[in-house]
Simulated scan of single mutants.
Amino acid sequence: MNACYPAVFEPQQPSGYVVQFLDLEEAFTQGETIDECIFNGAEVLTTLLEIYLEDGREIPRPSENVKDAYHIAPDARIQSALLIRWVRGDRSLAKIARALETSWPAAQRLEDPHHWPSLKQLDKMASVLGKKLVLSFE
C-alpha cells in the first residue's frame, strides 16, 4: 500500500506542462520541466491531502497501473497519516489506543498531518494493525 498518486503531464505551448492528478480533480499545477512538475505536484498533493485530513474528508486511494502517468507522493508526514487512516479503517481510536497502551489523544496524533511520528510509533502502530512497516527511498 502506498500513497503515490498518478498524474498526467499535458504539454503546453510555447513551453511547459500542466499537471493533473487523476484521482483528485482539485489537484493540479504546472511547471516548465518534468522535474519542476514533479516537485510542484508533490507540493500541491501535500497541501490538498492535508486539508482533506484536517476536514475528515474521504480520501480516494490512488489508482494503480495507470499507463503513461507519473506517480507522485505527498511528504512523509502526510503519507504516514494517510496510510494509518486507511489501514485503521473502521476501528475506533479508543480501541487502537488500548492496543498501543497509550492515550486516545496520543493515538489520534498519529493521524494528524501536523505531527511527525517516530519510527518506533509507526512500527508499533503497524504491528497493532496487523501490518509491517516498510521504508524506502525513491
Rank of each mutant, 00 (worst) to 15 (best):
F28H: 11
C37Y: 01
L129R: 06
L22C: 02
D90P: 01
H71F: 15
W104Q: 11
E101Y: 00
T102W: 06
P113S: 10
H115Q: 08
H115K: 06
M125F: 03
D123M: 09
G56I: 11
L110R: 05
G31C: 03
Q79F: 04
R85C: 07
L129F: 02
A69E: 00
P11H: 02
P74I: 04
W86H: 12
P113M: 11
E138C: 12
P6M: 07
I34H: 09
A106Q: 11
L93F: 00
G56D: 09
H114Y: 12
G41L: 11
I84T: 09
N40E: 05
R61T: 09
K132N: 12
R61F: 13
E54H: 13
I59N: 11
E58P: 05
F9Y: 08
E25F: 01
T33S: 14
I72C: 11
K131R: 14
C37G: 05
G31Y: 10
E36A: 15
A97F: 00
A94K: 09
F137M: 15
G31P: 04
E25M: 08
E64F: 02
L135I: 15
D75L: 08
S103Q: 01
C4Y: 10
L45T: 06
F21T: 05
E101F: 03
L100Y: 01
G31N: 05
H71I: 02
A99K: 07
E101S: 13
V66H: 07
Y52H: 14
Q79A: 10
E101P: 02
S15K: 14
A73V: 01
K132W: 06
P113W: 01
E101H: 12
L22K: 04
D123F: 07
H115V: 05
D75S: 12
Q108D: 02
P11Y: 00
A42Y: 03
S103R: 08
L135R: 12
A97W: 06
T102N: 04
G56W: 10
L93I: 03
S92K: 03
V44K: 11
Q121F: 07
S118R: 08
H114K: 11
A69S: 00
A81V: 13
M1P: 07
I84S: 08
Y5V: 01
K120V: 14
V66C: 06
E111P: 00
Q20R: 15
D55G: 00
E43L: 14
R57S: 15
L100A: 09
L93A: 04
L122W: 05
D90S: 15
W116F: 10
Q12R: 03
N2S: 11
P11F: 00
S15H: 01
I38C: 05
R91G: 02
V19F: 05
V19Y: 04
I59W: 14
I78G: 09
A99Y: 00
P105H: 03
L119F: 15
E36D: 10
E50G: 15
A126N: 07
T33A: 07
